[in-house]
Design a protein around this nucleic acid. Structure first.
Lengths: 217, 217
DNA sequence: TCATCAATTCTTGTATACAAAAATCTTGAC
DNA sequence: GTCAAGATTTTTGTATACAAGAATTGATGA
């Protein structure tokens, strides 16, 4: 575990947060000099951070012009959620035959904490436990590469998943789906787990309008 | 289509090639100064290129120590191929109901050129057409995000796929599998396409030993 | 002979300087 | 008043300079 972070990495993380949290609009240029001033560093670590943003897909670089924030539009989001759904399905398929008893136990425990959080209207805890639930399935694939890819996408979609789960009635339904997923994994039924996870993550029906609506806020 | 490449990007590509082609061993340190000399540039664009390598997973950076090439071992490769198999399966599932007639025609044409290449023992063409075959399926998903992710992984695995296809009897079998995939796509049978693609890409049975063997060369 | 620790050298990370391309402003013609 | 072309300013991309941490070397003592 290398907790050591070089300054450029720290700046990159902070910048990601800034882009996430809507401090920038789509198309905004990320001015190296202004950023350098506001972070009180030279342009060098700023440029390093900008490169990271570009390579993670949060921004776009146009040579000799600068880097511009690139927020996903409705179509991009649909595509990303669809991809996430397929990757989660794949994780479920593999995890069904590989997840450990400890993993299954953790899933159940996490689900209980999710339920409690719903009862208490504790959104933050709910989000956190929900994330753990899915990460436990990624881990269950016993494929660290796939696990890392899944976490990468999960992280990328995090801000949008939050807005989705806010909608009325979504959380109890989501919990019911979790139960279905766990049941499939317990039975070792890969196809069922894949289907349950795909449906759980997919943006379909009403969720679509809600997602679009949340973009205009 | 921005064909404009900044020098750092060009150097990054070249460096990837060098790491690919076995000019470096696992764990080798990528010396900024030596690289700068050999490319006849300053350390700045070299450092930019090294960052790209790190973020693409070809190298690992240890703060204040340098960046070291990180070649995947047998386990990493198995995990990456398994992930690729699942992603290709997902592409097949989606493409089955979305691929255009042009896409299907392109698949058949590409397969024919593949066959011809086998007959002529023209490995280079075979590899190239094989790549196009898969990319056509990615495109067929009508999901540009998934398409990009698939191409990224395909690119990452390219050097290892080549060594695999060299083995005796592999090319004709691979072609038969291509036919199966096209048939499923034509029927619009998503599940069949997914299964066919998963089996086609997966490293199983004999292929496993061959892959391991090719690593020690 | 081996281990340890200080001095030195090397390497990375950051700041600054400079060159070239892009953007902006100014001026002039119509 | 508008447009175009040249001059000026900005901004990016690259080179160089410098500071601090890591590696290495060598001297000293057991």
């Amino acid at each position: 575990m290398e907790t050591e972070l070089t300054r450029g990495e720290k700046i990159a993380e902070t910048l990601e947060q800034l882009v996430f949290s809507g401090d920038y609009k789509d198309g905004d240029r990320l001015d190296e000099i202004k950023l350098a001033e506001s972070f009180a560093v030279s342009r060098t670590p700023i440029r390093e951070a900008l490169q990271r943003l570009v390579l993670s897909g949060f921004a776009e670089q146009i040579p000799r012009r600068g880097v511009f924030v690139r927020l996903p539009g409705p179509v991009d989001l649909m595509e990303m959620f669809e991809t996430m759904a397929e990757i989660e399905a794949a994780c479920g398929r593999l995890a069904a035959s590989r997840i450990s008893d400890e993993g299954l136990a953790l899933l159940e425990a996490t689900n209980e904490r999710c339920q409690d959080a719903i009862a208490r209207q504790d959104l933050e805890t709910y989000y956190a436990e929900n994330e753990i639930f899915h990460q436990t399935i990624y881990r269950g694939t016993a494929n660290s590469f796939l696990e890392k890819e899944a976490r990468r996408l999960q992280n990328r979609l995090k801000p949008y998943r939050r807005t989705q789960l806010r909608f009325r009635g979504r959380m109890p339904q989501s919990m019911a789906e979790h139960e279905l997923i766990v049941a499939a994994l317990q039975k070792g039924d890969g196809e069922a787990a894949a289907r349950a996870l795909r449906d759980h993550v997919a943006v379909q029906g009403e969720k679509f309008q809600q997602l679009i609506a949340s973009l205009n806020s």
